[in-house]
Nucleic acid binder design. Structure first.
Lengths: 240, 240
DNA sequence: CGCTGACTTGACAATATTCAACAGTAGTGG
DNA sequence: CCACTACTGTTGAATATTGTCAAGTCAGCG
């Protein structure tokens, strides 16, 4: 169930078999969710985290005006609200995109394992820091890239991240976000997302049909996105 | 020298006097810098972090097109590239805005103290997670707020953060960013920043004169910014 | 079969950018 | 001390990108 999660971790740093056992024991109750639920509300007091095992989640913030900004997209293997372990209250909602399931991990259990396995504290600290790095690249997109470049970047990033956990089929991957949700992520309107997506199709860069994306011209897509995957930190390092 | 840093930490969680001693001992060499230096380049291998003791730094990313996005603004007391402790290579540059100084802290020293004082591991993990929270609020600004709202939000945030470390004088604070740098942070052009700043002045919300900002109408400014400081996590919590 | 939500299109408007020019200030070197 | 340069801030006019509003199609679902 948490094999994708271990794949993600092992890509970035070595995990001993002892540590693997401990991580596998972390998982308590599994909670299933339906699409479009808010699993955690901003400000709520937390005593556990959610390791996403199936389906997609997003972090999102609402504005008084009713607008919503999606701040991060989570795929299976992601420890979606691990930052809540130290923050204790999130500054954003955790909402589901699809049906799916999370493995619940109590903060107490986490505290225990990092006490006994200090290396895992670094592993998970690294994990939240990589999340933040992804967030910075998104801010770069929102600040400097055009609509078409942002959208291309989104597709490049998700393909790379899904590939790590084995959820791609060649250049194709499931992509369950509606155009409204893409708009909320890219900071654009639905209308403009629709037109921009058509432009990507017209240029022969991607295809999209029933909730899946196929990258037709990777070079072209990466060029328009100015995609450089180094911010994903897809290489191994030695911690402490 | 690192009193502001301790103020910041103590606002969020309790630090024992023993821990304080350990933190004070962390500081090794102090490095002074001039304005507009790049202290750390993206991708560079790191074996130490920088605790900002004087002056302002920014995290920034360059695009092939030559555009620059400022992703975070750092003020004295900030452990500016603490995330580099686990990442080992930053995905962005660390650049100076003003003259100033950083206290250098080797990764080895950090690894030692968190091994001996596991609570401090949580304290600094929290610290990077709060940085990420500030980054998310910025992404919300870039994605959903208008130019004037973003700029108002920037001033509200900086006043709140500077107040924590005792760098405000009532509603006034030093603000050394040029309009070009503000533009790079807000994802706007210099021209538009200039006009937007004039609008804030015309509405009687802020004054700005020789590198300092005075908030003239806090309610009004916060309203236009939709400012809600909860993302700054300015409250105490118990870690582990 | 009638809803509802997702997607699509057209016409128009607002926000922000681009380009070009100029004033003020500080720093530099002759 | 002054001329020179470079940077910062400012303004106007034209343009581009993206948003708004309104309407309509299509598919899935109870």
């Amino acid at each position: 169930m948490i094999t994708p999660h271990l794949k993600k971790l092992r890509l970035r740093t070595d995990i001993s078999s002892e540590e693997e056992r401990v991580i596998r024991d972390l998982v308590g109750e599994v909670r299933r969710f339906k699409a479009d639920e808010v699993l955690v509300h901003a400000g709520e007091e937390l005593d556990r985290c959610m390791l996403l095992v199936e389906g997609w989640l997003v972090r999102s913030k609402d504005l008084p005006s009713g607008e919503r900004q999606v701040l991060e997209i989570h795929i299976p293997g992601d420890f979606a609200d691990l930052h809540g372990f130290t923050l204790k209250r999130l500054d954003h909602d955790m909402a589901s995109v699809t049906d799916g399931a999370v493995a619940l991990v109590s903060h107490a259990a986490l505290a225990n394992i990092i006490e006994e396995h200090p290396h895992l504290a670094l592993v998970y600290w690294l994990s939240t820091n990589i999340d933040a790095s992804v967030g910075r690249e998104m801010a770069l997109s929102l600040g400097q890239r055009s609509a078409i470049s942002r959208m291309a970047h989104l597709f490049c990033e998700l393909h790379a991240r899904l590939k790590v956990v084995g959820e791609t089929r060649g250049d194709t991957f499931d992509f369950p976000l509606t155009q409204r949700e893409i708009a909320e992520y890219l900071g654009l309107t639905v209308v403009h997302v629709n037109r921009t997506l058509q432009e990507l199709r017209r240029k022969g860069l991607v295809e999209s049909e029933n909730r899946a994306i196929t990258i037709r011209d990777r070079r072209g897509l990466e060029a328009i996105a100015e995609f450089d995957p180094s911010y994903l930190h897809l290489e191994k390092r030695v911690l402490a």
